[in-house]
Amino acid sequence: MSVESFRTRIAQITGQIAGRPIDAALDAWLNAEHGAGSASYAQLKQSCEQGVAEGWLCNREGGGLRYGRIFKPADDLDGFSVDVVDMRDIAGPHHAHPNGEIDLIMPIDDGALFDGRPAGWLVCPPGSAHRPTVSNGRALVLYLLPAGSIEFTK
């Protein structure tokens, strides 16, 4: 898996969600079409696991987290930025999503949860905020941020 192949795989998803409201309906659609158990979910998870193993994903570390913005917002990604975080039984820094946030939850350990949710997608609407938390083990979380917009709380 190359970085370019990963970008193409992500663009297949962003192309399908571009222009849709970032809301509960998108959450339901993503989980129905690309949720845990789907081929697209399995491919994305395998790509992320491989990227972490090869060192081009989650190549920064701080506060008990491994993380990294792999792609800045771009036209071929329909204006989304792409980050991946590797978390194990930890709460990350509190932040807000001015334009919303679309998360792909990929448990590495069986039963690992992200913000109380199992494997699949979590859509946080514009204006929402949270302290992202992985419990019950380790998970990778892929974040799609419209226009790359995120505001960390001091």
Score class of each variant (00 low, 15 high):
residue 31 N to W: 07
residue 77 L to Y: 05
residue 137 G to T: 00
residue 63 G to E: 09
residue 9 R to Y: 06
residue 152 F to W: 14
residue 5 S to G: 07
residue 53 A to C: 06
residue 115 D to Y: 07
residue 77 L to R: 03
residue 71 F to P: 07
residue 77 L to M: 10
residue 145 L to C: 01
residue 28 A to Y: 07
residue 78 D to V: 00
residue 66 R to G: 04
residue 152 F to L: 14
residue 83 D to S: 14
residue 25 A to F: 04
residue 67 Y to K: 04
residue 45 K to N: 03
residue 123 V to S: 10
residue 20 R to H: 09
residue 17 I to G: 08
residue 60 R to K: 14
residue 26 L to G: 15
residue 84 V to Y: 00
residue 75 D to P: 11
residue 44 L to A: 00
residue 31 N to T: 09
residue 3 V to R: 15
residue 73 P to M: 11
residue 67 Y to G: 11
residue 56 W to T: 06
residue 142 L to H: 01
residue 136 N to I: 02
residue 26 L to S: 12
residue 11 A to F: 04
residue 120 G to K: 05
residue 138 R to V: 06
residue 52 V to A: 12
residue 5 S to L: 09
residue 139 A to P: 06
residue 85 V to E: 00
residue 86 D to I: 06
residue 18 A to K: 15
residue 111 G to Q: 08
residue 130 H to P: 10
residue 99 N to D: 06
residue 38 S to A: 10
residue 31 N to I: 01
residue 68 G to E: 04
residue 140 L to D: 00
residue 13 I to R: 10
residue 65 L to S: 07
residue 104 L to A: 03
residue 39 A to E: 11
residue 9 R to S: 15
residue 132 P to A: 05
residue 26 L to W: 08
residue 117 R to E: 02
residue 139 A to I: 07
residue 14 T to K: 11
residue 52 V to M: 05
residue 5 S to E: 15
residue 25 A to Y: 09
residue 118 P to S: 13
residue 124 C to S: 14
residue 148 G to H: 10
residue 120 G to C: 05
residue 101 E to Y: 02
residue 29 W to N: 12
residue 31 N to H: 08
residue 43 Q to I: 07
residue 91 A to I: 03
residue 37 G to P: 10
residue 121 W to M: 05
residue 128 S to A: 14
residue 40 S to A: 12
residue 89 D to N: 15
residue 88 R to Q: 14
